[in-house]
Design a protein around this nucleic acid. Structure first.
Lengths: 227, 227
DNA sequence: AAATATTTTAAATAGTTTATCACAAGTGAA
DNA sequence: TTCACTTGTGATAAACTATTTAAAATATTT
């Protein structure tokens, strides 16, 4: 699918040139010359990348960048005249992903655009990782990691698997047999209290350490994790 | 069927942006900017998911989340500003299903919404989130939990099993023999009044405590639970 | 191969639940 | 209203369950 690039530039010549360069490479484009209108369009429509000039009528590029960043991570590349070097720095501070100084070579622009898009896609893919939230505990299954109040908790493999099983079934009481089957892979139910022991380990590393009750016992039945 | 998502956010621009993003993906949406009104709408109407900003006029998102959780399992995703609140939020008890920091990429938000909805649906389908309701009492079989007027009732295993059997057969009078067979597993009927005793325990924990008559005696026959 | 970490088993302890009994209270028929 | 029977309830001993600890067995790393 072709990415849609929004060109915010009040100099018609430059805007047109950009548009031709991009469309020749298969991108879709839209152009806007007025700052305030550009901001509104960015908010309301969906673009995959914004090329943003700094000097614009009604609202300048810095201001647009700042405001857009309050609500969106859409990739932004700032376009600056060569002598506005101070602006470069400031633009990056405002959350732009990259910048280009005018005049620029088409190849360099395309390379930067591809780079920014690639990094952005990676960011999204990584950010999509699932996580399970219970109170202030977060379990990240892909990372094999658990944090409580932002602090990493060190768990052994069995401890982690047990916690994961509980968290995946938040609120439901799981019997020792269910747990043995799922976490330990036992298929006949022996005479062991290993589940109880591991519950105890988890509690000392989580409940006790952070002074909150996560793991609940239902006598005669099993264990459950709850908010 | 399109899921209905309730956007609770006081910044119009952000709310609007969320709405557009979601509607473009085929969700139905509703917006509310005031915290107290949002709470009332959540309680009274049916939404499939709540996007809940933290800072809101009249009642903040944390408070709403906490109160809603007392009566409902509706999926909640918290929205927090990146710098100011993020750290605090990690340290606070959400009871939420997930959270997002602003600004966020539309793709990530959609991925999280789908993830939370999927898990919620699985919870309902697989975990038979069935509930038995008698007057103000709700019995959740998977959670081994009983609430009356939203308040959790502490029951022992036998008490719970007996209550469950009665509730599963609401309005039907069950004889002591039937109860002994099903709940106690006795297959010959001895000379015991243990059923009577447990009926008494249940009444003191439920009927008496909450001042309503749930368990009825049919003289010479047995017991039944009724609205 | 030694050192370290993890997992399992076993046993002591503390705590809760259960069943029974004895008697009190309640109910309906005569 | 009384009587015979049914039902309700508090006390308690016995049974059971969960928790913790420590030590033994196993796996992993150095």
């Amino acid at each position: 699918m072709a990415e849609k690039i929004f060109i915010v530039e009040d100099e018609r010549q430059i805007a047109r040139l950009l548009q031709l360069t991009l469309e020749r490479e298969g991108f879709k484009t839209a152009i806007e010359s007025n700052g305030r209108r550009a901001y509104e369009r960015i908010i309301q429509e969906k673009y995959d990348l914004i090329l943003l000039d700094i000097m614009l009528p009604e609202m300048d590029g810095m201001e647009i960048c700042k405001r857009v960043r309050e609500v969106s991570d859409v990739p932004i590349i700032m376009l600056t005249a060569r002598d506005e070097i101070r602006d470069k720095v400031e633009g990056l501070d405002l959350g732009a992903d990259d910048y280009m100084t005018k005049p620029f070579a088409g190849e360099e622009l395309l390379a930067r655009i591809r780079g920014v898009l690639r990094r952005h896609n990676e960011r999204i893919r990584n950010a999509e990782e699932t996580r399970y939230v219970v109170k202030n505990m977060i379990l990240y299954p892909d990372r094999y990691e658990v944090t409580v109040k932002g602090e990493k908790v060190d768990l052994t493999h069995k401890e982690y698997s047990l916690l994961k099983y509980l968290v995946e079934n938040k609120r439901n009481v799981l019997s020792r047999d269910q747990i043995l089957q799922t976490v330990w892979g036992y298929d006949y139910i022996g005479d062991t209290n290993v589940v109880d022991v591991y519950i105890s380990y988890l509690r000392s590393k989580i409940d006790d350490k952070f002074g909150e009750k996560y793991i609940h016992t239902t006598r005669g039945v099993g264990y459950a994790i709850k908010d």
